[in-house]
């Protein structure tokens, strides 16, 4: 079977014109246009460029969401199996448009996408996690080298194959970690790396260090006596039976639980879902992790105005940082909307 591919390019590569034509609205042309010829040649019989969608870089940059939607509609009308965009080389608006088109196609049509850019094109950092980006030179001189690489990767995706490493495919890394088996065991690799490091010889770390977010703490409460205080925990405290099925590790969700009228987290009513610590004491008395009992006492004594009616809980055990950040944002939003003044965060 021959796969159907739609190619996305800008007004310049379509031969419509330069900056003076950058306001070109999205349009569809049947078959190949401009660099599509080289791409079609590289596909051979296995895939066919059924249509080319063209859009001016200026129009796209000024109307990102609308332009992406219009382009996706045109692409969808061709019922393709995959979309290839660019190459954009070091053209910033073009690269951004290619990335945005690929992302919109992936999200709306669920099709595989490939584009190509120079590593410093701003489109790379914006869209590298959303599409495959083949590495190119900074100008169109690199077209002849880039196109076969794009075609071969697109064909792999069309066949349902898993692409190889970025170095093998000629792509810029997407920033995802993928497991593989290496030739030697970890201890041997570590000893070799140490010998090299001590000799001052080049070596390659297997995990480049990330850069961490640092969140400045909020200012102190002005008046504790009038404050509504909420409890949030990563210690996995949940109503007995774990109604939301929060995972023991790598939690995919958090729970929201009503504690209005609850004075004490008893063993009959609460326990932990956390798989990273000995649950004996949390199951025996969940107040040890989520101190509802003490806060109720303080509330009665008038030390603060009110314990918030809901607590939020997840399991902080091997939970991906990206998910934890999302839980945090959502919980903070809910607490703010509920007029909560301060939060006590407990771990395990």
């Amino acid at each position: 079977m021959t796969y159907r591919v739609v190619h996305y390019i800008n007004q310049f590569f379509a031969g419509i014109g330069g900056e003076e034509e950058a306001g070109q609205r999205p349009l569809l042309k049947e078959g190949v246009v401009g660099p599509g010829q080289a791409l079609a040649a590289a596909f051979g019989d296995e895939a066919q460029i059924v249509a080319t969608v063209i859009c001016g870089d200026g129009y796209f940059a000024e109307n990102m969401d609308r332009a992406a939607a219009e382009v996706v509609d045109l692409i969808a009308s061709c019922r393709p199996d995959a979309v290839v965009a660019g190459p954009a080389f070091n053209a910033g608006r073009y690269g951004t448009a290619c990335g945005a088109v690929c992302q919109a196609v992936k999200e709306n049509l669920g099709l595989p996408t490939v584009t190509a850019m120079y590593p410093e094109n701003p489109g790379v950092d914006l869209y590298r996690s959303e599409t495959y980006i083949v590495e190119t030179t900074d100008s169109a001189r690199g077209l002849r080298k880039a196109v076969p690489t794009m075609a071969s990767l697109a064909l792999k995706l069309l066949r349902g194959e898993t692409p190889g490493l970025p170095s093998e495919e000629g792509t810029l890394p997407q920033g995802r970690r993928r497991n593989l088996f290496r030739d030697a065991c970890g201890a041997e690799r570590a000893a070799d790396m140490l010998v090299r490091k001590l000799r001052g010889e080049p070596f390659e770390t297997e995990y480049p260090m990330p850069v961490f977010d640092r969140v400045p703490p909020a200012g102190a409460l002005k008046n504790l006596k009038e404050a509504t205080i909420a409890l949030v925990t990563s210690g996995g405290i949940v109503p007995k039976g774990n109604p939301d099925h929060i995972e023991a590790s790598s939690a995919s969700r958090y729970g929201e639980y009503d504690i209005s009228g609850v004075d004490d987290l008893t063993a009959a009513g609460y326990g932990t879902a956390h798989g990273g610590y000995d649950p004996t004491y949390a199951d025996g008395d969940a107040d040890r992790v989520l101190p509802v009992d003490v806060l109720r006492e303080m509330e009665r004594e008038g030390r603060f105005a009110k314990l918030h009616d809901f607590f939020y809980s997840t399991v902080g055990n091997g939970t991906p940082v990206a998910l934890a950040a999302r839980f945090g944002r959502e919980i903070a939003e809910k607490l703010r909307n509920a007029g909560v003044d301060a939060v006590i965060l407990t771990s395990t």
Partner: peptide, 14 residues
Amino acid sequence: TNELGLGRLSAVTV
């Protein structure tokens, strides 16, 4: 994923 390096499993950025 033994961290004494008992196995050959590893990860790369793709």
